[in-house]
Design a protein around this nucleic acid. Structure first.
Lengths: 296, 296
DNA sequence: GGTAGGTATAAGGAGTGGTTATGTGGTAAG
DNA sequence: CTTACCACATAACCACTCCTTATACCTACC
């Protein structure tokens, strides 16, 4: 057997780049070193592996035969090393996630569970806040990643939308007759409305949309959580602006009904975001992958 | 990535033998050397790979994870090296030969047979074409070697003439009286002539020779194969320009007769040719040797 | 014909990777 | 309890490998 496995590392690089000089650059060594290494390998195998041409080299039949194996071998080693790294980083460590509480409850929970099952040794550190607050915390390093309502306009953040959500208005029994038919936003705002507090991203999104239509709202109630929106609407205190996907239970059980708007509010997204400038930790990467459903 | 692949060779041995000292013996080195190698690997991966016990070592979780990959990789390298050996011993491989069909039938066949008997595991890949076409294919790497009619004027090709052949004119019964006596080319061209198609090297050779004598031919027939030349001549459709060596059967059986030319056409050769710039594969070398009758 | 880009060759020097010698710890037997 | 043995760790040293610089040679292209 060939004495030095390292020769194969060089061999593979040359095989791929079809050039001694280029391989040398890639390997941070000089061309003569590569030349000698290949020559040594050829000597030890007593086989010509490359055909030298004026414009580089190309594998001989024997060379490409060997290349198939050597390349796979090197790749295997790489994979092994990566597994080790993963193992190391995921058997210890902490994952700091910033998230709004509506999102954490209705969207994130299953992913947290899945991640924990897969990597039981990673501790969670969940920070609650509005989208805006989370962005600030993210930049100060308080959390590794944040799961927010989009849109977010911040060039320093990498955004990964995951699912689309639809803002909608819901009402309880008392408004059933009035809202039996589709109506326009102009008509809607005459009714008592229930919104999230004005600092929340969701509220701002819907409000901005309505302002763009020339409509100004003055909510009857401003509440701190999505749950409260649903409960207030249920006991007929008004018509609540909620996220359809997070109101499934109330809607399917007939506790609440959706307003049929003539002009529907455009969809927006929920997604993960993190700093572009800071490389993600292994655990964070895995978590993002899971949320994006890239594997399993 | 870990700097030295060689560390993995040692790592695998230790992983298998579960002992530094034993691995050291197997690797023909001393125990401290192994000890240091493993420590270096552990340092570079920043991971403990072995649990040291009083009676040897055992792989950690991370270690056995890595071992799976490293061991497969090493085995792959081994297999690759063995394949190379096989290749060298010509127990595997392919030989791509370009050849004209006249030549393959009348000249090459016995050599193909001989080579196959000697190296039964080498596959043939035979490509047909005219001499000119074959040279092109040769340069594009489509074949390893080509067996052609010479002369070939190409400085990038190495030529190995093998046998001389003689171009000659043959005729059937009907022309017997007219051609009983030797005649000159000038007289010959007045008779109906049968040639190969003009793109063939043989045709060009003879035609060039005649032009050099100031004679222009206008063949009655232009045919695609040497066989047809003989058959056409046999049924008295004209006088065919053929290769004497490939017409033995017809001549000895009296089906055809040779024109006795006053100016005989110079002999030319059939031989093997291949690219000067590309070293011959082992199989090709052997084949050339056989065709040149250098051994056996 | 000159230049650019590629590989081969030669010689020298630094550093890796092995050696020997010795230390440490744990187990088992007396 | 003590001693002996076995296995790995540590230290110091040295040689040889491997990489570098310098140079030569070839071909293709302008």
């Amino acid at each position: 057997m060939v004495s030095k496995l390292d020769l194969y590392k060089i061999f593979c690089k040359v095989g791929k780049s079809e050039s001694f000089s280029k391989a040398a650059k890639d390997l941070y060594m000089t061309q003569p070193a590569v030349s000698q290494a290949i020559m040594q390998l050829e000597r030890e195998l007593d086989t010509r592996l490359f055909i030298r041409t004026p414009k580089g080299v190309s594998l001989t039949n024997e060379g490409s035969l060997l290349f198939e194996y050597a390349n796979s071998a090197i790749n295997l080693i790489h994979v092994g090393e990566e597994k080790i790294l993963e193992f190391k980083n995921l058997t210890t460590g902490e994952l700091k996630i910033g998230v709004g509480d509506t999102i954490s409850r209705y969207f994130l929970l299953p992913y947290l569970e899945a991640f924990h099952n897969r990597y039981p040794n990673i501790k969670f550190n969940i920070v609650n806040g509005t989208t805006l607050e989370l962005c600030t915390i993210l930049k100060s390093g308080g959390v590794d990643i944040a799961v927010c309502n989009f849109p977010i306009d911040d060039p320093t953040l990498e955004l990964r939308p995951c699912i689309d959500i639809q803002d909608t208005f819901v009402y309880g029994e008392r408004f059933k007759k009035i809202l039996a038919k589709p109506l326009s936003l102009h008509e809607l705002v005459k009714l008592p409305l229930i919104f999230l507090e004005s600092k929340s991203n969701s509220r701002r999104y819907v409000e901005d949309f309505m302002i763009s239509k020339g409509i100004k709202i003055s909510p009857e109630f401003e509440l701190g959580s999505h749950d409260l929106l649903l409960e207030f609407a249920k006991i007929n205190l008004g018509i609540a602006c909620v996220t359809r996907e997070f109101s499934k239970e109330y809607l399917t059980e007939g506790l609440l009904h959706e307003v049929q708007l003539i002009e529907e509010i455009p969809k927006r997204s929920i997604g993960v975001c993190f700093l572009k400038s800071v490389p993600l930790s292994r655990a964070s990467t895995k978590f993002v992958e899971i949320v994006e459903n890239k594997n399993n």
